[in-house]
Write a protein that binds this DNA or RNA. Structure first.
Lengths: 217, 217
DNA sequence: ACCTGAACACCGTTCAAGT
DNA sequence: ACCTGAACACCGTTCAAGT
């Protein structure tokens, strides 16, 4: 698997004009920390501006709307997700397609658990402009990789099922499982389901492996 | 499986005092239709009041806060979910534990697909007061039923795995899968994953059955 | 008992004016 | 080129006053 491409290389920070150096990034950081402390719904552009030390209207020089600001946070979140996925994929050099599919799941879990705020921003689609951003394309590449790897796994005879349509369904099921597990963990539901392990990452990987081994030959 | 208990039986509508009859319910209905048309984030108490034909302050006679109003919508959503689950469970009279676990999944899917707005309200936990409502208890009963049924399935020798801790993990995995599939369907992601079947309910049940049959003996 | 309508402290967003 | 600060049309919530 060649690594998934990430967004354009970091542009050089705009010099001067704003006394802190780079207002755009300062606003993104302020937004993330506000989401952490007060939750996504409570994020106001005005408070983000205040944290960054600028007037209420200043953010609109950099983002056309509150939605655009949150969408930019989601873009940043996707950057990090793709980094984690590529890291996990790189660790499966020479392994078979099913193990590479598994690696994408692992990367996703590692990202979600270490960046709960970013996970929340991406998964709350009503707060961002998903369709109108690069998210639809980059998310599509992750999906395409998952579908292709599962299809390859079928061709390579790694799956118990032999019906061609099952590969597509397994690819979706794995994604739904990963998403659901991450969401349940972030929402703090694990303890009530009897999952009290010290390491949630090990816990979700264990369950994902149950899925992988149950479809494998 | 005895049917899950639902909330208190419908109270008789308060007579008079408000010219439409029952403001509380009128507000809930207005909230649901607003969520449908403008999305959860765009719901304002003021506009809900306007739709119901009352002044901006009137809703606060019935709900202490915007969150409480949305939480009441979530309670109503849970009522419907439990109805669907009980319907599905009733149809599995005499079948084994694993089939009853499956029935809960079917009920959940039928509910989510026919009530996408209610699904969204319940699953967006930041918009409601989950912990401070009856939701935590009633949701807990659904969870307990799933855990017990999967554990019974293990005891009855219906599962391939024999490790006792696997039953708990299968119970969670099924829930995460069901949640993830419903969410992906509601978000309109099915077509891009190649799932273009006319009946989404059949589609998700098919994938849930893949899960059930992969853990069954 | 229930609703009105003014009031308060917030919002998102715009835009002329400043530097 | 970028930021300020006033302005506008909104919010959620409170509360005295009406019926």
């Amino acid at each position: 698997m060649p690594p998934l491409r990430n967004s354009s290389p970091t542009k050089p920070a705009a010099r001067r004009g704003y006394h802190h150096g780079n207002l755009r990034q300062a606003l993104l950081d302020a937004a993330v920390s506000l989401i952490e402390t007060k939750g996504l719904d409570q994020v106001s552009v005005r408070e983000v501006a205040k944290i960054a030390g600028v007037s209420p209207g200043a953010p609109f020089r950099h983002f056309p709307s509150r939605t655009a600001l949150l969408t930019a946070v989601a873009e940043q979140a996707t950057d990090r997700l793709i980094v984690e996925i590529n890291k996990a994929l790189a660790a499966t050099e020479g392994e078979n397609s099913l193990m590479q599919y598994r690696a994408i799941g692992i990367g996703f879990f590692r990202w979600a658990i270490t960046n709960p705020v970013h996970f929340q921003v991406i998964s709350t689609r009503t707060a961002i402009d998903f369709e109108g951003s690069s998210l639809v394309h980059r998310n599509g590449e992750i999906r395409a990789a998952m579908v292709r790897l599962m299809s390859d796994a079928q061709t390579e005879g790694l799956l118990r099922n032999t019906d061609a349509s099952d590969a597509a369904r397994h690819a979706v099921a794995g994604r739904a499982l990963a998403y659901g597990l991450a969401r349940m963990y972030i929402d703090g539901q694990f303890p009530s389901w009897g999952l009290r392990g010290a390491d949630p990452l090990e816990e979700v990987i264990g369950m994902f492996d149950l899925f992988i081994s149950s479809i494998a030959v």
